[in-house]
């Protein structure tokens, strides 16, 4: 308990400093905000053109697709706002700053997480929060308290899953010379799942994004559950928190072994 408390205090102190560092670059701040909006805008244009031409994607109506994308954005932004630095282990090792983490009597994990905060991710959160109800309204669906509770559970679990996947890929740096390419593969995968229902990519892909790299739990399964789709069995969708827990466990294990490996090779 004492440890958690002091850990949180440390995190707060680190974050405060990180923010002061960010505020040094005021021009960048505004530029980034505009840029993120543009990028999201581009995605929305894509979705709109497709929906305008084809009306629907399989059994998924435009409203459904908006909810799907919105769910992804919200979960993903939990990673990108608070845990972004976890995906940058390679950079830290190459630049030599990783050694500094090991030279201070504070958990390296905490130093890493506290080392960055990506305010631009908040645009994603915001957009997601707008898109989900918009999609629901287009469908004419209304959520009760029960659905809203599930929504919160899904988003939080999705956040954990996103963080863990990015973290695990980044940890590969401890074993291979470049985790970068692995990350590229992952990007290709989530670029597909973020906007489109997994079902259109066939059973093999679905196994991949459910069992191996469970990005489908960020938005697909929650959307199936919340929108009452028939793409997946009900019970499978509720596994989201379990997947999050399992991944968190694996991450903790891999991180420990990675540090040990770093201790014996020195990067």
């Amino acid at each position: 308990m004492q440890e958690i408390k002091s850990g949180l205090k440390m995190y707060g102190a680190l974050l405060k400093m990180t923010l002061r560092g960010i505020l040094q670059y005021r021009v960048d701040f505004w530029m980034s905000l505009v840029s993120v909006c543009l990028l999201n805008g581009a995605n929305i244009v894509q979705l709109s053109v497709i929906s305008w031409r084809f009306h629907a994607l399989g059994s998924w109506q435009v409203g459904d697709l908006l909810v799907l994308y919105g769910l992804f954005l919200i979960s993903w932004s939990i990673f990108s706002v608070f845990f972004f630095k976890l995906s940058k282990i390679e950079d830290e090792i190459v630049s030599g700053s990783f050694d500094a983490y090991l030279l201070r009597p504070v958990r390296p994990f905490l130093q890493l997480v506290g080392g960055d905060i990506k305010y631009t991710g908040l645009c994603d959160t915001l957009l997601g929060v707008v898109l989900v109800p918009m999609g629901l309204a287009m469908n004419g669906t209304h959520w009760g308290l029960w659905q809203i509770l599930w929504f919160v559970v899904f988003v939080l679990s999705g956040g954990v899953i996103a963080v863990c996947i990015k973290f695990l890929i980044s940890c590969a740096t401890f074993w291979t010379t470049k985790a970068n390419a692995l990350n590229q593969v992952f990007i290709q995968i989530y670029l597909l799942t973020q906007k489109y229902p997994v079902t259109i990519f066939g059973p093999a892909f679905r196994v991949l994004v459910t069992g191996l790299v469970p990005v489908a739990y960020l938005n697909f399964y929650p959307a199936v559950f919340l929108l009452g789709k028939s793409d997946a069995p009900f019970w499978m969708c509720t596994l989201s928190p379990v997947v999050a827990l399992v991944l968190a466990g694996i991450s903790a294990l891999v991180w420990r072994r990675g540090l040990r490996r770093y201790n014996s090779c020195g990067g």
């Binding site: 400093m17 201070r104 504070v106």
Partner: peptide, 19 residues
């Protein structure tokens, strides 16, 4: 081993917390 973007004194302050 100091923080690149913040004033030196801030780095010293955070080290104070850490140690």
């Amino acid at each position: 081993s100091l923080w690149w973007d913040v004033p030196v004194i801030d780095s010293l302050n955070i080290l104070k917390e850490m140690y």
